[in-house]
């Protein structure tokens, strides 16, 4: 059986908020290393990979592989019943047809308990190869969100060009064109506001802004986001958490 308690409901709330629009139904794969998820969006353009490591829970018990097929809109409804500072305990049997959630508030001795019905989801797992990316760009999450939002007003797609000087996001659409360049820099007082580019070779790739805007729903998970690019492979957009991550992979647009 699975038994996993997380100190802060807000962590789980933010993770689900980050992915629910992209992958509304998905399997949570639970085993002794933690709770993982891998799912493609409906159009098979993007892939979400999430991991909440066992050491982010206390206690954490899961002695065999359990797949929890969850409708994330249903889970969101139940998680709205938890306050951000509540502790959440997740419980499921070995062959579960429901997931039990207990929310505890130690301050006012309030305990609430919910069960949500699980679904049978036939999900394909893709093999994500280990990739040495040509460029890895780490930038403030809020900056990435702003760039995606701004450029999506002009165009459906954005070219991301990484050089050792920095990164340039550019787009062109019916009303005109636009670009935002972030030069590599280090903010000593607030390192999370720095822009860093690790580069082995320059890269220039084009991606759908609709998906990037969607990925930015994970912005509350981390102060920085890392974009990893190589020519002709999917972009990796990674939000790291203390005990896990949410990664989005996005297939590039290819010139005909």
């Amino acid at each position: 059986m699975l038994e996993a308690r997380i100190e802060q409901a807000s962590v789980l709330k933010r993770v689900i908020e980050a992915i629910k629009d992209l992958v509304p139904d998905c399997n949570f794969d639970c085993n002794d290393t933690g709770i993982a998820l891998q799912a493609m969006d409906n159009s098979h353009v993007a892939l979400v990979a999430m991991l909440l490591r066992a050491d982010g829970f206390s206690p954490y018990r899961c002695d065999r592989n359990i797949a929890l097929g969850i409708n994330l809109n249903s889970l969101t409804k139940v998680l709205r019943c938890a306050q951000n500072e509540d502790m959440i305990t997740l419980k499921a049997d070995d062959a579960p047809d429901s997931l039990n959630l207990v929310f505890e508030n130690t301050e006012n001795e309030r305990i609430s308990e919910y069960d949500i019905k699980l679904m049978d989801i036939d999900q394909e797992h893709l093999g994500i190869p280990d990739t040495e990316y040509s460029a890895s760009i780490t930038l403030p999450t809020a900056e990435f969100q702003r760039i995606c939002r701004d450029l999506s007003q002009l165009s459906e797609s954005v070219a991301i060009e990484a050089t050792k000087e920095g990164v340039k996001f550019s787009c062109s659409g019916d009303i005109g064109n636009g670009s935002v360049t972030l030069r590599t820099h280090q903010n000593v007082d607030k390192p999370e506001l720095s822009t860093k580019v690790d580069l082995t070779e320059p890269v220039n790739l084009t991606f759908s802004l609709k998906y990037l805007v969607n990925f930015c729903k994970a912005s509350s998970l981390s102060q920085t986001v890392t974009l990893s690019l190589s020519n002709e492979v999917p972009l990796l957009v990674e939000y790291k958490m203390d005990n896990g991550y949410v990664r989005f992979y996005l297939a590039p647009k290819i010139d005909e």
Binding site: A46, L47, G127, S157, Y249, D255
Partner: peptide
């Protein structure tokens, strides 16, 4: 214009 790629053509089924 550019064609949107499919993620499955990059990552094979396990």
């Amino acid at each position: 214009g550019a064609q949107q790629g499919n993620i499955m053509s990059f990552f094979g089924k396990k």
